[in-house]
């Protein structure tokens, strides 16, 4: 296993790139939403899911289950028919 410095040395630039992709996608979504479409876009449950996930990641602290928690966040029970 890598030590903490090696983890950052190895993966920092990749994480930076992934964060920029998230930022660019949110910018793209906002830019595409104008007028009435803006409210609809804000209410898109997928956008809300993403923003909730980002707030969870931004909470900071030391933990080792962020991936598991995000997967639970994106999980759904089947709708009864």
């Amino acid at each position: 296993m890598l030590n903490p410095r090696q983890v950052m040395d190895t993966y920092y630039l990749d994480v930076r790139s992934m964060l920029l992709e998230i930022a660019a996608t949110l910018d793209r979504h906002d830019a595409a939403a104008e007028g009435e479409a803006a409210a609809v876009a804000r209410d898109d449950p997928r956008r809300q899911k993403i923003e909730q996930a980002l707030r969870f990641l931004a909470a900071g602290g030391s933990r080792d289950d962020r991936t598991e928690q995000l997967l639970l966040h994106f999980s759904e029970e089947p709708v009864a028919t």
Binding site: L71, F74, S75, E76, P78
Partner: peptide, 9 residues
């Protein structure tokens, strides 16, 4: 096992 949101259940 199922994909994406259906996997846990």
């Amino acid at each position: 096992t199922p994909h994406l949101a259906d996997k846990l259940y």
